[in-house]
Design a protein around this nucleic acid. Sequence first.
RNA 1: GCUCGGAUGGUGGAACUGGUAGACACGCAGGACUUAAAAUCCUGUGCCCUCAACAGGCGUGCGGGUUCGAUUCCCGCUCCGAGUACCA
Length: 932
Amino acid sequence: MDYQFKEIEQKWQKYWAENGTFKTSTDQTKPKYYVLDMFPYPSGAGLHVGHPLGYIASDIFSRYKRLKGFNVLHPMGYDSFGLPAEQYAIQTGQHPAITTETNIATYRRQLDQIGFSFDWSREVRTSEPGYYKWTQWVFMQLFNSWYNLETDRAEDLTTLIEKFNAGGSAEVKAVCDEDINTFLPSDWATFSEEEKQEELLKYRLTYLKESTVNWCPALGTVLANDEVKDGFSERGGYPVEQKKMMQWSMRISAYAERLLQGLNTIDWPEPVKEMQRNWIGKSIGASVKFEIELTQKSEFSTQNYIEVFTTRVDTIFGVSFIVLAPEHELVPALTTEAQKQTVEQYIAQTKKKSELDRMADTKTVSGAFTGSYVVNPVNGERVPIWIADYVLAGYGTGAVMGVPSGDQRDWLFATHFNLPIIQILDAQKEMATEADATKEGKYVNSGFINGLTYKEATAFLNNWLEEQGVGKAKVNYRMRDAIFGRQRYWGEPIPVYFKNGLPYLIKEEELPLVLPEIDKYLPTESGEPPLGRATNWKHGEGVYELSTMPGWAGSSWYWYRYMDSQNKDEFASKEAIAYWKDVDLYIGGSEHATGHLLYSRFWNKFLKDLGHVTEEEPFKKLINQGMIQGRSNFVYRVVDEEGRGTNTLVSYGLQKNYKTTALHVDVNIVEHEILNIDQFKKFRPEFAEAEFILENGKYICGVEVEKMSKSKFNVVNPDVLIDNYGADTLRMYEMFLGPLEQSKPWNTNGIEGVFKFLRKFWRLFHNEEWQFNVNDSIPTKAELKALHKIIKKVQDDVERFSFNTSVSSFMIAVNELTDLKCKNRQILEDLVVVLSPYAPHICEELWSLLGHTNLSITPYPTFNPAYLEENEFAYPISVNGKMKMNLNLSLSLDESQVKAAVLANEQLQGYLEGKELKKIIFVKGKIVNIVV
RNA sequence: GCUCGGAUGGUGGAACUGGUAGACACGCAGGACUUAAAAUCCUGUGCCCUCAACAGGCGUGCGGGUUCGAUUCCCGCUCCGAGUACCA
């Protein structure tokens, strides 16, 4: 029989499932290799052709590694908490768990028919209580921990309390809230239980705090910074506003430096690392306190200075003004009676501007003078205090020192408001049109640092400021703590209850805290989160937390659960973690660069600090597969004089002769841009009687690359392709499409080529009557050469994730062996093994026809370079990089023999015409060029 | 604005450390088989000049450079894509 892909694929998928072929266990005799895909959120739309791209690549790699003798962990699961299921529940009343279950079933069916080698016995679902029990458990560990700067790691809260008992707050160097109290051990002892809890909350790695949050009214929840894009929610695109709320946060800022340093130790794409570096946003500089001028001092009870953060402390003699963010807490007190109206007007004006306006409008200079002054600590100069919205409340201290000569924004501000511009470096150019931020030259107009260079001045000033107690060198990070609560239903309950307004953890034995049933998935009438509707959502006297965890909670540790997914006593056993350690290869989209991938690194480092895991970084190597875009097809409807659509459609090439409107047409009824008119009439019944203006007898459609979406009729469903060509063809074609990491539009046009290849491959093993036919002859040189070329090529390609080029090489190899009429068993066996990661079903079938079993763990054939060696060559040689001629030369000749042979060559002699032969250029023992 | 990535035939793309640019596939054209179609196979296919062959010229976004030799390295630009954005 010819290649019957359906039969073969069903047969082997069933076989793999029944025999547990890809079930993995810890095997100390083999080296481990952990290949992980970013697990999907099971959306209702099912998989489109873009989703499996990364899974296919990771599957090829996993299968290849198994052949290479590794014990491969390659699991799959679902990130099954999330907004869409909940939005659907709000609309229909159907429980999100049911929606999720249905969607997962679809995903599973679609994944299964592609023939992945996942170990499904390890499947995880983040919305299962058996799983989220451990997400809650991690939360509890974070709640019970603090970050000790002296040991530079997280520690259990008991060590903090010990320090409080021993030396009071002075003993402690921690990453904590700013408003901590200072107290002696004796004070601590007198604190009430409530007071102690309140103080400890400021140190916990997950803590409750009043903070400004991104509030999305349409979704009725807060969002993390990475879930907001340009002032709109990432999911749904609803407007987001700033709001002050009591919120759970994760003290990820404690790990800023380690998260930054860790990037140097992992093999990730540079753009992702760069994004994380920017997100962490480390800047090295100094904080400086500017004392507020005496006249206003009386108004300040707690603070009589303004603290600024600068990366250019060396420019401090050039300060001609101070700018505060309009929201800065000292603004009301600093504003003088005379300036009150101006300032209040300005604040009102900036408040009106939305986040978006403020971002778009970076050119207009605006600001207001408060009427107050500070004193520059280095020279005693009076410096006016302004407010302006180019200073952000959320970064640094919300205040900057204005140095117009060295900073372009300060320059614009100074120019606009006529403030002095002071030259500070002798090498600075004229500052008539812009600031000069270069650090060259020696300082001038700069008091005691005159004559120093940038490096000297910075070091000197940092010291000086610290000695005077008015400043110090400081490192600032842009990364904020991550908001950890969502006012939604479909997420992990936070294992906390409240007593006297303070949070307490439930006991570990009480885990999991199971999500309660509620009547409606909406906030309560009083505006509480949906969990407020649950009856008896109480812990003894206390009420449980009503927020749930954000979407990223469950995905921040899931790779550990795969190591031991059924464990009821631990999130994973010590033995499993010691064996599997970390993820060797992680494949997924780059859209998670500053979300999931950062939070996962954070939790991993935390778990390491507590000794629960062994590695500092969770994902050794990361690959971002490119996005598959949609490729839309269009038909062109002719529009009449009045602009109404007619019943006539004109082919793409002729449309410029008419007035037309473009209409999306289902890509599945277009092949090579030629419209299938019969199917089109069914697709759009209103065009059943339409007239078609054709070119060369065909209707040609227009093409555009857009996002894949139902409304654009450009979604290609893998099910259809598998039905027509089989999973092996789909797998190879997805790889053939182009480099894995490159984004590209999907185009089904070339799939025939891959299908033809698989059929040819099948035929290598059969005679004309479709009988299985291989022989035991001795392989010829040519056959061995073809085989070893492909062994080497695939090995090299897979190791560098260049899967597209191997597909081409397979085609060449099969063409060569077909031409050689190769039926040799030895050759074909090795070929099957080499191809099997790419096209596992057909290879399993042929492997069994060859009389073998256990293809998935058969050793990868050993490459023997001897088969590729050649002795005689006829190859072109250029002279002076120009002319080309063929010389038959033996590669075994040494250099002088080659020279003699070249000189003796008649053709060359004619060309040389007595000119001297200067140089012969060899590459890999071959002459490539002769210089005369 | 900044950072990163990219630009190669009609199309997707190949060329791994500079060494025959365009592999492989699609498409197109022609042919074989067939009553016909499908399937399969064969041939051609970067552009220009040429009836054609031979030969030649031009060719990897643009302009320079290094080199015996550049798609590859360096400098300067143009365009496209992604991320980020008043971060002091």
